[in-house]
Simulated assay, not measured.
Amino acid sequence: MIVAFWLSLFIVFYAFVGYGIVLFVLIKIKRVLKGKPVLPDAVNLPTCTLVIAAYNEERFIAEKIQNSLELNYPEGKLMFIFVTDGSTDNTAAIVSTFPQVKLMHKDGRSGKIAAVHRAMTEVTTEVVVFTDANTFLNKDAIINICRHYSDKKVGAVAGEKRVHIDETADATAGEGFYWKYESKLKTWDSELYSVVGAAGELFSIRRELYVPVQPDTILDDFMISLLVTIDGYRVIYEPDAYATETASQNVGEELKRKIRIAAGGIQSILRLKPLLNPFRNFVLSFQYISHRVLRWTVVPFLMVLALLLNIIIVANGVYGIYLLLLIAQLGFYGMALSGLILEAREIKVKIFFIPYYFCMMNYAVVRGIFRYSAGKQSAIWEKAKRQ
């Protein structure tokens, strides 16, 4: 029982904190041996197409187009495709008023990945960049992404997701903290070898490496970016190319999004089996299992197991460090529960938001696993309402 407790606690700690510590140490060693990496110059940039899939985005689409047209990039080398899949509002009509961009509209709704596949049939440039319709890019985002393609070993480049939290934000403040931490891990992942998956808010790929994933794929961005690593290419993280969006409207909306991600995570693990084989690429498998697989599979269950075993151990009269750990666990979950209660009452005490958000994420993983196992998760995206 004691061995099971320590093993459970170690895996939970390692998945969320320990892996970051290990990465930090490995990066320091690598820099001593090889020096700090030098960013490539933004010269001889490749031709590029910006692809935006939109569904009922009339509130944001004009601003998104204007943001896209104002991006810095060599004249004549950047093209734009807006693909509207089943939109029932004025999204397509608004896009059609901008002659600088190509509109691909289809009345029937088949899902985001089907829309992306349609758009890719029209892409002829060397690189394609994907971004969401409700996110806005910094002016040098495309330059900062595409400069990395001067390295022939780079197959994809992921940008940074930034979450804007206003002063009235509730427990979704935890979302902003989470993405800042994730950004740091991705920076170190990229420097060690490769990022293990890109977020759909902003990522790119060499057109020749694009593989149409199955139409029922839930996390198409994650799958598309990692498929290039199976072929021996790297995915680079570029924090100076960022997409900004507002936080989810409330924790309920964020939970809906996290459950979908968790269901897609299990699907991706089942479909990306070569990445689990350390004999193909040990460093990549180490990164993938440490950063993704553990979080999307065993960690939520081990959190429950560690708490239950801790209670049993103390109940059997074994105190010392076990009593201190039990108090720490109960205190942490008590803070999360307080965050839940306060959020329901619209009381803003930010110290409780991070434990609350952490527990919500892991609860979403459990829900996502069962939803995918029951075949109830559709690939057609359901947008979370945002602030």
Rank of each mutant, 00 (worst) to 15 (best):
H105E: 10
P46W: 04
I269Y: 02
F10P: 09
Y242F: 12
S110P: 08
T297K: 08
L78P: 04
C48W: 00
R59P: 14
A374P: 08
G197N: 01
G20M: 07
A374I: 08
R118P: 07
I312L: 12
V123L: 05
V128Y: 00
D231Q: 13
L342N: 13
A173E: 12
A141V: 08
I230Y: 00
A53V: 12
N90Y: 08
K383E: 13
N44K: 06
V157W: 00
G331R: 09
L78F: 04
V101P: 03
G320S: 07
R367F: 14
M335D: 09
R234G: 04
A133G: 00
L185Y: 10
P300K: 07
K152D: 10
Y319M: 15
V163C: 15
A158E: 06
A374C: 10
L284W: 02
D107I: 06
I142N: 06
A263T: 03
Y363Q: 15
L340M: 13
G320Q: 05
V195A: 08
N56M: 01
L227A: 05
A262D: 04
V83I: 03
F353M: 11
T131E: 04
S225G: 01
L226K: 01
V83S: 02
P46H: 02
K350T: 15
V304F: 09
W296Q: 15
D221G: 01
I2N: 11
M223S: 08
F358A: 09
L69D: 01
F5V: 14
N67I: 02
A315W: 07
N316P: 15
Y322A: 12
L324E: 05
T172D: 10
S194Q: 09
D151I: 03
L9N: 13
I369Y: 02
T168D: 11
F279H: 11
A42E: 05
L284E: 14
I27P: 02
R345F: 09
E201G: 13
T97E: 12
R147W: 07
G197W: 01
E63A: 14
R207T: 12
I81D: 02
K34F: 15
V123H: 04
G18N: 01
E382S: 11
A262Y: 00
G35H: 05
E245G: 15
